[in-house]
Design a protein around this nucleic acid. Sequence first.
DNA 1: TTTTGGTTTAACCATCCGGTTAAACATGGG
DNA 2: CCCATGTTTAACCGGATGGTTAAACCAAAA
Lengths: 199, 199
Amino acid sequence: MDRTTEEKIYEAARRIFILKGMEGARMQEIADEAGMNKALLHYYFRSKENLFKSVFKDTFSKFFVKVKDTLSSEVSAKEKLIAFIDNYINLIQANPYVPQFIISEINRDPKVLKTLMFESGIEPQKILDLLLNGVHSGNLSKLDPRHIVISLLGMLVFPFVARPLLQMVYFNDDREAYDRFLNERKEVVKNMILKFIEA
Amino acid sequence: MDRTTEEKIYEAARRIFILKGMEGARMQEIADEAGMNKALLHYYFRSKENLFKSVFKDTFSKFFVKVKDTLSSEVSAKEKLIAFIDNYINLIQANPYVPQFIISEINRDPKVLKTLMFESGIEPQKILDLLLNGVHSGNLSKLDPRHIVISLLGMLVFPFVARPLLQMVYFNDDREAYDRFLNERKEVVKNMILKFIEA
DNA sequence: TTTTGGTTTAACCATCCGGTTAAACATGGG
DNA sequence: CCCATGTTTAACCGGATGGTTAAACCAAAA
């Protein structure tokens, strides 16, 4: 518990922003969550906008840096793909609200993306390379690999961002049942993707 | 142009809410969009909450009623599936911001869902039936059909809700290129799903 | 012990925003 | 023509909210 005031504020802000977004979050609420006086938020971060950008930038890039790690090891393309799926679901499960947070915020203000892509050295092309290099069976050579990447991401991310809806509609709002379902996902998605690529 | 004041307000509200969400929308902005005095919004809809719920309820159920239509004709299960994919992409293309709107709002306040599911006679089970009945080849009998439905929805919806990010990262922010990509999606998704089901 | 610097606090400010109100306006019936 | 009813408007209200300020606090240097 030797975190500085600034760190406590930042972490509280992160929790609140991820849950409620820029528009839904209140500076007072963040101050309460941090157990600090509201003026301190401005003392350390000057404005809400500033604090938010700081949080968003970190959250966004951390989420993509970890993706990058997955793809840097020296194994076959197929193994990389499998590792990617495992790790990505693990990552989302550890941060279940982050995808919805990112999607919401880039829709609210797509401008921030432009500055973000430069500042953080993110190379999303990497995921494409994974699919381009190495995997060259039937369908892939014909098909734009972006279709596969986006299908893959959709299959992985959608169950998390649409959780309240899906859990209610297809699982009688049973939290645990839905959690079990999400755990099964790894194998199912691997299966679907590999079946398609190798077909 | 013989719409009533109430209709003009409602339609303006629909546009604004879908674009900016409940929290991002301003009553004054809706009034301006409708070309009406702000007090009229309260005259006809009493409160922002009310106006929003009215819009959300309609938008939500219309989006699912149309899905239902797709599935009621008398053709083979496979043809139904193909028709569903076609119609669903058409539906989203005609209302590209609606999925993100719905997802955002149910995450912000999942409670409204409960009341909504009763009031509107929506039967999301229908999509499941489509897959359960009729399609009985290899994988399907073993696999929870909800995995397939959710994969399918993910593949269809994700390219729209994550558009700003994907368009920038994978298409150099070229709007037209991304539109072309979205048009290709129908065939690609059909292909992927059928390949998996029939494998 | 006093001074000096950063840190923390309560009180305050200005603006935004949802909502209200009372008066003006329009229209159709008597 | 006048009244009754529904509609529209400008002005206003109060609370919420992001942000500021000046004073209090505290620890380390001198």
